[in-house]
Write a protein that binds this DNA or RNA. Structure first.
Lengths: 196, 196
DNA sequence: AACATTTTGGCACTCGGTGCCACTTGACAC
DNA sequence: GTGTCAAGTGGCACCGAGTGCCAAAATGTT
């Protein structure tokens, strides 16, 4: 293991504390009603320091999503030998679904905050776009090199993300209680014929 | 025709002038580098008045998109007798594509502005979401009433928008020179089997 | 201990956005 | 035309997000 110096440890602590305090305040009062000053005060740092850890107020909300994207990228970069590109994508997505199921409670509160702040909804869609690009890259890598196949890969990725957003939306709508994995598999089966 | 009073005419003029001035400034200096004060000055109104016409600086950029959405809603609300819901959606989309082809120049500059302003990209995705909801409603209306068919309609709408965004992106990438209608038809054919 | 480096806090500033109020201007009487 | 009323405008003060800057504090090093 890497021994972290006191400095590194303190930084990690401050960041985590800011994130914790922010999410709690957002959940209680809504995203817009909470000021950065309040978050900083709750985490016992100055407002200026908040902006050293998070470039914007929105970023502190999406810290979890960044971690998810990293996990997704890792999964896509490590295909099982012999599987098709679409199967790799499928495996990665179902793994993510399992992660969602484990985080039900947090996702529910995050979603409530999200619903009350249009600015966050827009940013949220940007994360989907990043996922889409990751899928597109994975599918293109496994497809033939001609223009139609590559376009088809990108279209498939777009369709995939569009479809899965609907699945997650429905699942959240039902209080994160349904079988997300099953719904995800169903959607994946529907979209599978689009793969190049 | 409705005779517009002087008041109404002046309002329309001011709004159009603000929009014109804003787009020109954005195109020249980038979205972020232009302040609302500059836009207001260029349109010869006060900053306060700008915000009476457009709730945010972003809204002045997306005024055209709002009109597009209205057109789309109208097309979806007027299906030809006897066609399937998916065919209605297809017709509406190809009509929009024709509109895009006619507006090439403007779309190109808009896209350049967009590319330089992440905040605008996020907002842009929200418009896609509205379109998606419109498609979903149209497809659900034409589908059976059971839960799976309805979910499939929503998933199809999500996939459709995801796919078409890719098509438009590719088209813009090539300087709006390719055959957008043909590419759109190709993508629609790919997604068609998803329709409920 | 003394020194170098990183981190922090505070201040001043810009810009987007809003509430408020006084003032102007078009609409509509008579 | 003149007076009246409502709609629209401009200016001002204010808030919150975000940034540049610098001095003070904390940490790491020798």
């Amino acid at each position: 293991m890497t021994e972290l110096g006191l400095r590194e440890r303190k930084k990690a602590e401050a960041s985590a504390e800011l994130e914790r305090a922010a999410l709690e305040l957002f959940a209680r009062h809504g995203f817009d009603a909470v000021t950065v000053d309040q978050i900083a005060a709750a985490a016992d740092v100055s407002r200026r320091t908040f902006f050293r850890y998070f470039p914007t107020k929105e970023d502190v909300f999406f810290s979890r999503r960044r971690a998810q994207m990293d996990a997704l990228a890792r999964l896509l970069a490590a295909p099982e030998p012999g599987e098709t590109a679409f199967e790799t994508v499928r495996r990665a997505l179902l793994r993510l679904a399992d992660g969602h199921l484990a985080d039900r409670e947090r996702i529910l509160t995050e979603q409530r905050v999200l619903a009350g702040a249009p600015a966050l909804v827009a940013r949220d869609l940007e994360w989907d776009r990043r996922a889409e690009r990751a899928f597109a890259a994975a599918l293109e890598a496994g497809a033939k090199r001609d223009a139609v196949s590559r376009r088809r890969a990108r279209v498939c990725a777009g369709a995939l993300v569009g479809a899965l957003r609907v699945v997650i939306e429905d699942w959240v709508q039902k209080g994160c209680r349904g079988d997300l994995r099953k719904a995800g598999e169903e959607a994946l089966d529907w979209v599978a014929p689009l793969a190049p």
